[in-house]
């Protein structure tokens, strides 16, 4: 005689109490690593900047490093240039990547394949090489200057070591990821949905505005959020291509920590940078949730 429990088919995922500890153990490792390497440093950094000894050595709640940051002209200029660079890059990325993605999504033939390869190429170029190439091409006495000089034209006003230097580099560096995310969003817009819009009388611009953009709004948000979060805390490109003053938060933190040897203010700058990034992150999460709820 076969027992009913013996004959029952084994479920795909064993959820019995005997198997549960293994599942929890598997989850525990990444959770522990995130807590140890991400959450704890954040909490520790915040605590170190708000709970510390004052001039008399009395340990207590102290916001003087934040007061200093928000009253210091140079720190505020650095924060402003970082925000300006981030917003400019985000706008330029959308302006550049959306047409590229639309072209790649709706064109057929070999040419789109080459365009896609070119758009993805920067992903495989390290920032340091990109900076070097930028300096050799757009820098003082770079390739553009040499070419202009050869035809008797004056030199260009090089963007190297101006706020536009990091903008150009960061936009170039972020094009692949932005294009890939937008392309993935556009992949969800069915051809027949577009044809149906044309069928009821929509021209190309109306199709883009009323049908395509609302359908890829989440992808646009994801792409911009990824770009904004990366650009706000970028280091290599602003360090190599940007001006010495004002400077973006990445190089500013590094210089405060290493050259000025002021870890407290460097950590304060990091916490403020984190604060801005988390605001962007929360805006992204809220927008995605809002769109999905529609």
């Amino acid at each position: 005689m076969i027992d009913a429990t013996d004959a029952a088919p084994r479920p795909l995922i064993d959820t019995t109490a005997r198997r549960r500890p293994i599942g929890l153990l598997l989850v525990a490792v990444p959770v522990f690593l995130v807590a140890w390497l991400v959450i704890w440093p954040i909490i520790s950094a915040i605590l170190r900047t708000v709970w510390r000894p004052d001039a008399n050595g009395t340990v207590g709640f102290n916001l003087s490093s934040y007061v200093f940051f928000f009253s210091d002209r140079y720190s505020l200029d650095n924060l402003s240039v970082t925000l300006w660079t981030t917003i400019t890059c985000a706008a330029l990325l959308l302006l550049i990547c959306l047409p590229i993605s639309l072209y790649l999504r709706f064109s057929k033939g070999r040419l789109p394949d080459y365009v896609q390869a070119m758009a993805i190429f920067p992903m495989f170029v390290p920032s340091i090489i990109l900076s070097y190439a930028f300096i050799r091409v757009l820098g003082p006495n770079g390739m553009v200057d040499i070419l202009l000089n050869s035809v008797g034209l004056p030199k260009i006003r090089t963007p190297y070591l101006t706020p536009w230097g990091p903008v150009i580099g960061l936009v170039w560096d972020n094009i692949p990821l932005t294009v890939l995310i937008l392309l993935s969003g556009l992949g969800n817009v069915a051809n027949q949905a577009i044809e149906a819009a044309r069928d009821v009388g929509a021209n190309k611009l109306q199709v883009l505005w009323h049908i395509i953009l609302p359908r890829i709004s989440n992808s646009v948000l994801v792409a911009l959020s990824f770009a904004v979060l990366g650009i706000f805390s970028a280091f290599t490109l602003p360090y190599l291509l940007g001006p010495a003053s004002p400077e973006m938060m990445g190089p500013f933190m590094q210089r405060t920590f290493r050259e000025v040897n002021d870890p407290l203010n460097a950590i304060t700058q990091a916490v403020i940078t984190f604060g801005f990034c988390i605001v962007f992150g929360l805006f992204y999460v809220r927008s995605v949730a809002h769109n999905q709820g529609k």
């Binding site: 069915a190 027949q192 949905a193 044809e195 149906a196 819009a197 069928d199 359908r215």
Partner: peptide, 20 residues
């Protein structure tokens, strides 16, 4: 004539409704 200027109306196999 482009589709948007034709006096035709098409019903597609996949409905092609705009879900937004």
């Amino acid at each position: 004539l482009p589709a948007e200027k034709r006096p035709t109306g098409m019903v597609f196999q996949s409905h092609a409704l705009w879900t937004h």
